[in-house]
């Protein structure tokens, strides 16, 4: 079978399974899963960047961009259809990333992380200043619809949309990661100079991953803005971006599905420890993070998405420089 068809087939199957699960779980869990998909989408974009050796600490900017643009559109133009909102949010995130990418695509490592973070913090600062859209308090987003139907009553409709989006995004990313371009990105992580000598442009590969990540972040931001019914500049704050990185690293870059799982688990750990140990939930979250890193250093996704054999050749560790 064509591997691309197979991937999309698996994704469709997975979506159906999770929609079925959505029919039986309690309402709060449905919501948590929806929100986890929103975060997972952003983390999936980060996974794409990580495969190319890039870590963005400022995905909050595109997450926030998607949420604001779609949220404002819903408020000002009265558009509440999820298909429109998600498309707009995705394009907004991707566009902002495309505008930013010439600036950041030549950076690497910690400097890339910090530059992206600085940009997202500038956006945060600017948004807190604009009183017309609520300043630091943000604004509420009206209830979503789909093709004229209201979605908010049970949360199931939104959840189903989230699952479909997640499956689609995961499948697209899987296909992209395994394509020639995707593999060049992975190779760039190992040795950029060599890739350049072989005739590929690391710059354009990085740019492409960055725009993809921006689009996914915009998608996630829209989904969460609508699900939460509220958008504020905190979406662009560095701790929000940090949470996404957290989820992406926990998921690891081997798998395109793991991030959704880790997003969910992170949410649950935070929520339950906050509920039962309201005065020490940060510590529990920290311990959880340490445990995952110690026992699954290559991410939760490494449990099922084993790298192919030939990867073993390059797993010889370079000395720390």
């Amino acid at each position: 079978m064509n591997p691309i068809l197979r991937t999309f087939g698996l994704a469709a199957l997975g979506a159906l399974v999770f929609i079925a699960i959505g029919l039986v779980v309690p309402a709060w869990f449905l919501f948590t899963m929806t929100k986890a998909v929103g975060f997972g989408l952003v983390a999936l974009g980060l996974v794409g960047l990580l495969r190319g050796g890039l870590l963005s600490f400022g995905q909050g900017l595109y997450y926030c961009g998607g949420a604001y643009v779609s949220g404002l559109m819903a408020n000002w133009a009265g558009v509440t259809d999820m298909i429109v909102l998600l498309s707009v949010g995705c394009i907004a995130g991707g566009l902002i990333a495309a505008l930013v990418s010439p600036l950041v695509a030549r950076y690497r490592g910690i400097f890339f992380a910090m530059l992206t973070m600085a940009l997202s913090m500038v956006a945060y600062g600017v948004l807190t200043k604009i009183a017309a859209i609520g300043g630091s308090d943000g604004f509420n987003v009206p209830k979503p619809t789909l093709l004229g139907y209201h979605l908010a009553e049970t949360g199931f409709g939104l959840y189903a949309i989230a699952v479909v989006i997640a499956a689609l995004a995961a499948a697209v990313c899987r296909v992209h990661f395994d394509s020639g371009l995707g593999l060049i990105a992975s190779a760039a992580r190992e040795n950029e100079l060599r890739i350049e000598y072989l005739g590929a442009s690391v710059f354009s590969v990085s740019t492409r991953s960055f725009i993809l990540a921006g689009g996914l972040a915009g998608l996630g931001g829209t989904l969460n803005g609508v699900a939460l019914g509220h958008v504020d500049p905190f979406f662009s704050y560095w701790t929000t971006s940090g949470e996404m990185v957290f989820i992406a690293i926990l998921g690891g870059y081997a798998s395109v599905t793991a991030v959704f799982g880790t997003a969910l688990v992170t949410e649950l750990v935070r929520s339950f420890s906050g509920q039962y140990f309201p005065e020490s939930w940060q510590m529990l979250l920290g311990i959880f993070l340490l445990l995952v890193i110690v026992f699954l250093p290559r991410g939760v996704g490494s449990m099922w998405a084993k790298p192919a054999k030939n990867h073993a050749i390059r797993s010889i560790k370079e000395p720390a420089t």
């Binding site: 005065e279 939930w281 510590m283 920290g286």
Partner: peptide, 8 residues
């Protein structure tokens, strides 16, 4: 993670 733990 150390920061989170230290905080509490």
């Amino acid at each position: 993670a150390v920061f989170l733990i230290l905080e509490d």
